[in-house]
Computed example of a mutant assay.
Amino acid sequence: MSIRIIPLDQLEKSDKTTVEMLPLLFFPRLKNFYSRRAARLRDLAAKNPLGDYLRFAAVIAGAQEIVLYDHPLHMDLRDRLVQSAHEGKPPLDIHTLPRDMHWHRLLHSLIAELKPEMSGQALAVLENLEKASATELEALASALFAQDFAHVSSDKSPFIWAALSIYWAQMAALIPGKARAEYGEQHQFCPVCASIPVAGVVHMGNHDGSRYLHCNLCESEWYVAGNRCTCCDQTRDLHFWSLDSEQSAVKAESCGDCGTYLKILTQEKDPAVEPVADDLASLVLDARMEQEGFARSSLNPFLFPDES
């Protein structure tokens, strides 16, 4: 199954019934969104060996909250939605959507918020980004979206992605459409923007274990049926791993077919879990999965590879 976003006036009656029965897609609800993430990061930092980095990420998330409300986005996406539905592509496809200069304003506002909070290497990185030309910034964004990490240093990536994420989340929150399930593949990519997940979430009250994958860019969540790999769709040789106990709220689901794993967070076991924060705070589990020979199928916006 794959998910397409359809303009409201193009939904057939049967589509509307399906949407009401099973929410296939949740667009981001941005009120206090980043402040909740920042609070979770700070809470997790208190008893985590990576506490300093979690607090660093919390500072960025807190700045995102301020920048989000200082720079609202006004955009009519109806024509874009109609075009993308006709083409069968995500409406905010990172590979084809022309980027507005709005994200540059978000980045510079983010830098202004963060500079008083940073020192040393982090401050030097911000000052370097502050001087970058529009062309240079666009090249960095394109490299990140192409996962060409050799052309973007890992110390710049979180700041650039933080601004891009605000921009894409603002657009996603404005989409005037609903989701429709169709037969197809590539459900491991976000149906809103074609980016990849940071983690999966089993929502409160979802007793059948169905997961929603949380996008690492636009912050939308899309449904993926349970008991199958979220990357290759196979249903055999799936295993869950945890470091604490069977009751752990954070587990890794591995697939022996494609050799990948994805963190799955269960709200009933901890209602406070937050995809980005809890994924970042459980890097010990990532180390264990790598020892077992599995590779991540996801990407955390505060944990970009350094391939330079």
Rank of each mutant, 00 (worst) to 15 (best):
218 C>Y: 08
302 F>T: 14
158 P>A: 10
99 R>Q: 12
286 D>Q: 15
207 H>T: 08
37 R>H: 12
188 Q>L: 07
147 Q>L: 14
154 S>W: 09
287 A>F: 15
187 H>R: 10
153 S>A: 12
242 S>P: 03
8 L>T: 10
156 K>Y: 01
290 E>Q: 12
12 E>G: 09
192 V>F: 04
167 Y>E: 09
3 I>E: 00
127 E>F: 08
69 Y>S: 15
13 K>E: 15
19 V>L: 14
229 C>L: 03
167 Y>N: 14
176 P>V: 00
287 A>M: 15
228 R>N: 10
7 P>Y: 03
233 D>H: 06
113 E>F: 00
40 R>L: 14
107 L>Q: 02
22 L>Y: 01
236 R>N: 10
172 A>T: 13
115 K>C: 12
194 A>K: 01
298 S>P: 10
64 Q>D: 11
46 A>G: 06
296 R>G: 13
234 Q>E: 09
161 W>G: 04
266 T>K: 02
262 L>I: 11
179 A>Y: 03
220 S>D: 08
166 I>M: 13
88 G>E: 04
256 G>E: 08
31 K>E: 15
50 L>Y: 07
145 F>W: 12
37 R>W: 09
214 H>W: 06
119 S>P: 06
82 V>K: 04
145 F>H: 11
52 D>G: 06
114 L>E: 09
192 V>Y: 02
225 A>Q: 06
302 F>R: 12
196 I>S: 13
154 S>D: 14
273 V>G: 03
256 G>W: 00
60 I>C: 11
265 L>G: 07
84 S>G: 01
205 G>Q: 02
180 R>Y: 02
265 L>M: 13
109 S>N: 14
179 A>G: 11
262 L>A: 04
94 I>K: 02
276 V>Q: 09
38 A>V: 05
119 S>K: 03
30 L>V: 07
106 L>C: 13
294 F>R: 06
8 L>F: 11
51 G>W: 02
121 Q>R: 08
232 C>W: 00
298 S>K: 11
36 R>G: 07
8 L>P: 03
239 H>R: 02
160 I>C: 01
152 V>L: 05
149 F>V: 14
264 I>Q: 08
209 G>Y: 00
13 K>R: 08
196 I>N: 10
179 A>P: 01
136 E>T: 01
273 V>L: 07
222 W>M: 12
82 V>Y: 05
232 C>D: 10
93 D>L: 05
95 H>G: 07
60 I>R: 02
193 C>N: 09
185 E>S: 02
138 E>K: 00
18 T>S: 11
21 M>T: 12
143 A>N: 11
179 A>D: 09
35 S>P: 05
136 E>K: 00
226 G>Y: 03
13 K>L: 14
265 L>A: 10
99 R>T: 09
142 S>V: 10
243 L>F: 09
14 S>C: 03
116 P>W: 04
99 R>M: 06
30 L>Y: 08
162 A>Q: 07
157 S>G: 12
297 S>M: 14
156 K>F: 04
67 V>M: 14
155 D>V: 04
175 I>T: 15
159 F>T: 08
179 A>T: 01
207 H>A: 04
256 G>P: 03
283 L>G: 15
12 E>I: 07
92 L>W: 02
75 M>P: 02
92 L>F: 06
253 E>P: 03
186 Q>L: 08
282 S>V: 13
90 P>T: 00
164 L>C: 13
86 H>S: 02
37 R>V: 11
151 H>R: 14
